[in-house]
């Protein structure tokens, strides 16, 4: 039996690509769209560098609000992808506010340095903000549009630089 080696290689490659594409498409993490977007609750907190953040000052920008803690494994694992999405959009009307619940800056700084996190990490020492946002488990994330409405939410970690999520963020940034 004589076969073109190139043909065999191409067939194997095509099959593999199809398999990867199909499995990837079905397991891809997604965000839950809020049917009736509602105004984001107050968020006025100080970050680990001592800078004050008020979410209302970010009107006109898309804000990713992420509630987390350093001892929460899924929270830790999504942080590198959050940094990548920050790198991609930070100068394009996009803000991340990572709200650490119940910990001190001293607990967080080594973690932030280890993971090279550059986006603002704000401190919700008494979990008042988490309760106001009706967070039940961590990590929980919200995407807030330019008008200050919560339009997407996610419970559990995500790969924030996933193509589908990037597309959602880009659409929100582009939306007038």
């Amino acid at each position: 039996m004589q076969l073109s080696f190139k043909t065999i290689k191409a067939t194997i490659l095509a099959t593999l690509l199809c398999f990867i594409f199909l499995t990837d498409a079905s397991s891809r993490p997604i965000l839950h769209p809020i049917a009736k977007p509602k105004k984001a609750p107050d968020l006025m907190l100080t970050d680990i560098d001592g800078k004050h953040h008020d979410i209302t000052n970010y009107r006109g920008k898309v804000v990713l609000v992420n509630f987390w803690a350093t001892w929460c494994p899924p929270c830790r694992s999504e942080m590198p992808s959050m940094q990548r999405v920050w790198d991609k959009f930070k100068d394009k009307g996009f803000v991340i506010l990572a709200v650490d619940v119940g910990e001190k800056a001293d607990d967080i700084i080594p973690f932030a340095m280890e993971y090279d996190l550059e986006f603002p990490i704000v401190l919700d020492n008494n979990d008042k903000t988490a309760r106001a946002w009706k967070v039940r488990g961590m990590p929980t994330s919200f995407l807030v549009d330019k008008q200050g409405n919560i339009v997407y939410q996610a419970l559990g970690g995500r790969e924030w630089d996933d193509v589908k999520i990037i597309e959602i963020i880009q659409n929100l940034i582009d939306k007038i």
Binding site: P29, I30, L31, H32, P73, P74, R136, G137, Q153, A154, L155, G156, G157, R158
Partner: peptide, 15 residues
């Protein structure tokens, strides 16, 4: 683990 929680598609939680 939260006492009451709604899990939408792709949501997960541990506790």
């Amino acid at each position: 683990f939260p006492t009451y929680q709604v899990f939408w598609p792709a949501d997960y939680n541990w506790g």
